[in-house]
């Protein structure tokens, strides 16, 4: 904002912005925590239905997406190192790779959801309500909410990374002021972290 004169501290406090980001991550963790709580209760109440419904999901796509996210987490982590090593070109390249991987993840997700829609499975669909047990309705309800909210976080993460990339290019984010890139990285790892738990809970029920 323009009237930066009004307030004081012109210092750049790297620790403060990192702490702020971590606090935000805690909030996000508990946001998803609420969903995991709902999931655990309903899985406990409907173990058999969750197993049946889980077999509808495509393990291969799930596993591929897991690996894609893990690799993208590595590339963004490496980009913070390369920024500190003052290798601007490599930083930009690594961030571009991260964004591409995120995009591939979303495309996979799009096809995965598309297949479900083709089978007549979406929240509140007739097929779901008429032909499936209550446990299966809950499973798919939670599946769409949790992966959907996760996908939303992927999109937000991509936007943050694009902003960071832009500022790295302009030199506003550099080895002396790396906070934005580091926070983008932390946010991206959070997205990864949540997927690490979503994957076994939805795709690995046997």
């Amino acid at each position: 904002m323009e009237n930066a004169t009004q307030h004081s501290d012109p210092h750049y406090d790297q620790e403060a912005s990192k702490l702020g980001m971590w606090l935000f991550i805690f909030t996000e963790l508990l946001l998803f925590g609420g969903l995991f709580l709902v999931y655990s209760i309903y899985r406990f109440l409907n173990p058999e239905a969750f197993r049946l419904a889980g077999e509808e999901l495509n393990l291969t796509i799930g596993a591929i997406n897991t690996i894609i996210l893990l690799v993208s987490s590595m590339t963004i982590a490496m980009s913070t190192s390369s920024l500190q090593k003052k290798n601007k070109g490599l930083t930009i390249f690594l961030l571009e790779v991260t964004i591409m991987l995120a995009l591939i993840f979303l495309i996979n997700k799009y096809f995965e959801w598309g297949v479900k829609f083709d089978h007549g499975i979406w929240p509140g669909s007739q097929h779901l309500i008429n032909d499936m047990s209550k446990g299966e309705i809950l499973f798919f309800g939670l599946y769409f909410v949790m992966t959907g909210l996760h996908a939303l976080h992927i999109i937000v993460g991509m936007i943050i990374i694009i902003v960071a990339l832009n500022k790295v290019q302009k030199g506003i984010v550099n080895e002396n002021r790396p906070s934005l890139l580091e926070n983008a990285g932390l946010y991206w790892h959070l997205v990864d972290l949540i997927w690490i738990f979503l994957f076994p809970l939805f795709y690995l029920i046997h």
Partner: peptide, 27 residues
């Protein structure tokens, strides 16, 4: 500020992917 070498990140990635396959295996 501690700069983590690239290869450390790479090893971690290998470990993460291995663990993913192990979790698929165990189920």
């Amino acid at each position: 500020h501690h700069i983590v070498p690239y290869k450390v990140y790479f090893y971690i990635l290998i470990a993460l992917i291995t663990l993913t396959f192990m979790s698929i295996g165990i189920t």
